[in-house]
Each structure stands twice: as C-alpha cells, then as structure tokens.
C-alpha cells in the first residue's frame, strides 16, 4: 500500500501550481490587508483548525470513521512539542517531528479499534479516548500543569530565523496548511485514496472488490493523526501556552463540524468551512449572548438545507447554472 501510495502521490506531486498560486495569493492578502495582531491571530487559528480538519477529512470524509478524538490528538501533538521545547530545550523542528509521530501513534491506536468494532460504535471509542486524554492532562499536574496548563513555551525559531511575530506565525501556519492541503489532494487522487474512499462509502462492496478496508482505514487514521499533531505543535507556538480547555470536546466537535459543513470528502470545502466557522465561533460568541443559540440552531438548519456542505452547494450552483445555459442554448 505504501509503495503504491508513494507512486501515485508522486504523479500528482508534479503539478503543484494551483496550490502554489493559492498559497501566494493568500499570503499576499494576509500581508497586505490584515494588520492588527488580533486579526492575525484569528488567521493563525483558521489555518490550524483547517489543517486539523483536513486530517479528520481523511479519517471521516474518506474512510468513513466518525471520530471525536481529533482535538485530543491535536492536544497530544501540542503538549508533546511544548514539553519537549521547555523541558528538553529541543529545537522546534525536532519537537514538531516527534509531535507528529506521537499523534500518529495515538490516532493509530484509535484506528485499531475500528478494525474490531462496528463503525456505529466507533464514535463512542473515540469519545472515550478523548476524555481519557483530557483527564490525563488535568490530573498529571506535575507534567502538564493540570487545568492551568503550561506557559513559557519558547517563541518560534526555525534554523536561527525568528518567526515569532504575528505575521510570520500566520505565514508559517498558512504555508503548512497549503502543504497539508496539497498532500491531501494528492492522496485523494491516488489509488489508495480511491480505496480509502470506497471503504468509507460502502465497506462491503469495497471488500468484495478486493480492497483491504481494514488496512486503508488504519492508514487513514495514521495520516489524519499526523495532521492533527502538526496543527497542535503550531498551536502551541501561536498561543505560547497550552491548557486542556483548548482541546475540549467542544473543539473536537468544531473540527467535526468543519468537515461536515465543508462537505465530507472535499478538501477545498473543508478549508473554506474552517475559515468561516472559526470566524463565526470566535466572532459570534464574542458579540452577543444569543450567539451560541444561533450557532447551535444554525448547525441544524444548514445540515437540513445543505447536507452535502459547501461542496454540495457549489456543485448544485454549478449544475443549476449549467442547466440554465443549456436551456438558453437549446431554445
């Protein structure tokens, strides 16, 4: 699987132009138009949640596994990176690699459960893992600082280059996001990507056509975990502080929501949904007391009106537009 995946990834990797263009435009816009440090902070959050959601999109959108453990996996990445930098004085890049690996292992552990039990129950297992990790973070005070979390994370420096300014952090987050997006697109286009997707849509059928669903699901869990781990490590640099509250069930549900609202399986939709939802949840909740009520009801209404998310809406618009054109031409 790995070999074929690498091969097909390589074929797609030859054409990164669209992603490079998107990256360039986004960085330019952020650099030109977003000035205040709090807005740049918002941009960082958008990029990091988008990254974690892209990971979940591989697990849920492609492999069909409903997980609420993504925020916990992100927490493990963040805490691993943060603690390595504080306690072992490791440079960020090393901490990032270890964080990615640790998160992959946790996500793999969760993925293993999917091999044994029904996908109906999978969400309960992920819930249990998420809550267990959060209890660990709270109770192991000596290591994690407990509920109050850990501060004093060294600012971001990569290879002697100080990247701790809000703009530099935002750019780093955006670059990482586009790399992740690109890889996710490549994966989706690859043969194993098709396999993962088929396994998610209809496991029996996929199995009947000779696809090893279990292995693909496991692979999707590992890959998705790396995304969350990297997002977590960068999150630590963004806040220079880590606490269990930032990776609560509410945050896991936000990531899940991003994927569903974006249109499961669609990477572009996921990124767009992350931008919108992070803005809404930071903006709406800040503005009024009815914010959460609107947010909750909004979720239900959007699901009923547009269950295929932004991706579905875009598709429908395109089709409607096409039909109108066709009619014009025909008459």
């Amino acid at each position: 699987m790995v070999a074929t995946a690498m091969q097909s990834v390589r074929t797609v990797l030859r054409r990164p132009y669209a992603h490079l263009a998107g990256l360039a435009i986004t960085v330019l816009v952020v650099q030109q138009f977003v000035e205040s440090s709090s807005s740049l902070f918002l941009v960082q959050l958008m990029a990091l949640y988008a990254l974690a959601a892209l990971g979940l999109n591989i697990i849920l959108g492609m492999a069909g596994l409903l997980s609420v453990a993504q925020a916990a996996v992100m927490a493990l990445g963040g805490y691993t990176a943060g603690l390595l930098m504080i306690k072992a004085q490791l440079p960020f890049v090393v901490a990032l690699l270890v964080a990615g690996a640790a998160s992959a292992v946790l996500s793999a552990f969760v993925g293993l459960a999917a091999l044994r039990i029904s996908s109906h129950y999978f969400i309960l297992v992920t819930l249990a893992v998420a809550e267990a990790l959060s209890l660990l973070l709270i109770n192991e005070e000596d290591l994690t600082g407990g509920y109050n979390g850990i501060g004093g994370i060294p600012p971001l420096v990569i290879g002697g280059l100080d990247l701790s300014s809000p703009l530099a952090l935002a750019v780093v987050a955006i670059v990482t996001l586009f790399i992740g997006w690109y890889v996710a697109d490549a994966l989706a286009a690859s043969r194993s990507g098709h396999g993962i997707h088929a396994g998610g849509a209809d496991p029996q059928l996929a199995m009947a056509s000779g696809i090893n669903v279990a292995r693909l699901r496991f692979g999707a869990s590992v890959t998705g975990g790396v995304y969350a781990g990297v997002a977590g490590a960068l999150y630590a640099e963004t806040l220079l502080y880590l606490g269990p509250g930032d990776f609560s069930l509410g945050k896991a549900l936000l990531i899940l929501l991003i994927v569903v609202i974006g249109g499961m399986g669609s990477n572009a939709g996921t990124v767009a949904a992350a931008v919108i939802l992070v803005y809404l949840s930071e903006g709406l909740l800040r503005l009024t007391t009815v914010g959460p009520l609107v947010y909750g009801l909004g979720i239900m209404v959007i699901l009923v009106i547009a269950p295929n998310g932004l991706d579905g809406v875009a598709r429908r618009l395109r089709r409607a537009f096409g039909r109108i054109l066709e009619r014009r031409v025909a008459r």
Binding site: L253, V260, P292, L293, Y295, G296, G298, M300, P307
Partner: peptide
C-alpha cells in the same frame, strides 16, 4: 447517521444556551 449525529450536536449547543438565556 453522521449527519443526524451532527444535528444532535447542534441541538445540544442550542439547548444549553437556551437554558442559559
């Protein structure tokens, strides 16, 4: 079922804030 579960998440958020309001 994923979609319906997401919808109950929305319900949960809405009910909690309704109570608080």
């Amino acid at each position: 079922t994923v979609y319906a579960i997401m919808s109950t998440i929305g319900l949960s958020v809405a009910l909690q804030s309704l109570i608080q309001l």
